[in-house]
């Protein structure tokens, strides 16, 4: 992800009202992290597993935070249990910011990512999680606002899958 795209994404998260971000770092979108850390509007929570990242964000949602969980696409499979038994079952609005590794537009795609990546959207559909694909930084502000509105309307997790220019 180029620096200006990272800045645009971080600003859009703030504009959408996200104020609590749990994460397990990965490669493609990681440049947003120093920006979020430098801005006191965000409470940034590092974790050791996407499973706990989802559970912690759900807890924060239940006490009035507007949380997002930032993870690599493979993390979706690590936290499926937590999404299902906590976020979906209880109904906590959380925004999943997923680096869509192994997708067609992933600029770093390889045999290490593609076979698992192609299951990502199927898994989201199986869990009944609404999602959109973000590949154009020009649209990121609108997409984040739409996704945040949707998660509050549903009181459910909503996912944005970042690929294309976000994976440079």
């Amino acid at each position: 992800m180029e620096k200006d795209v990272a800045q645009k994404t971080a600003a859009a998260l703030k504009g959408a009202g996200i104020d609590f971000v749990t994460y397990l770092p990965e490669t493609r979108l990681s440049r947003i992290l120093p920006l979020l850390e430098a801005d006191s509007a965000f409470k940034l929570v590092p974790t050791s597993s996407e499973a706990e990242a989802v559970t912690i964000a759900s807890g924060a949602a239940l006490v009035g935070k507007q949380p997002a969980v930032y993870m690599e696409g493979t993390g979706l499979f690590v936290c499926s249990y937590n999404l299902l038994t906590v976020s979906i079952r209880v109904g906590t609005p959380i925004l999943l910011l997923i680096s869509y590794v192994g997708s067609m537009a992933d600029q770093k795609n390889s045999f290490r990512f593609a076979p698992t990546g192609l299951r990502t959207e199927q898994q989201l559909r199986a869990l009944n999680i609404e999602y959109q694909i973000a590949e154009d930084p020009a649209q990121v502000e609108t997409q984040l606002q739409n996704a945040t509105r949707m998660m509050h309307a549903l009181k459910q997790p909503v996912a944005l899958l970042f690929t294309g220019a976000f994976t440079l």
Binding site: L24, P25, R31, L33, S48
Partner: peptide, 12 residues
């Protein structure tokens, strides 16, 4: 560190 993350965030 998570040194695969390009920005090397600290681990626990």
């Amino acid at each position: 560190k998570y040194s695969g993350s390009r920005i090397s965030r600290p681990s626990a």
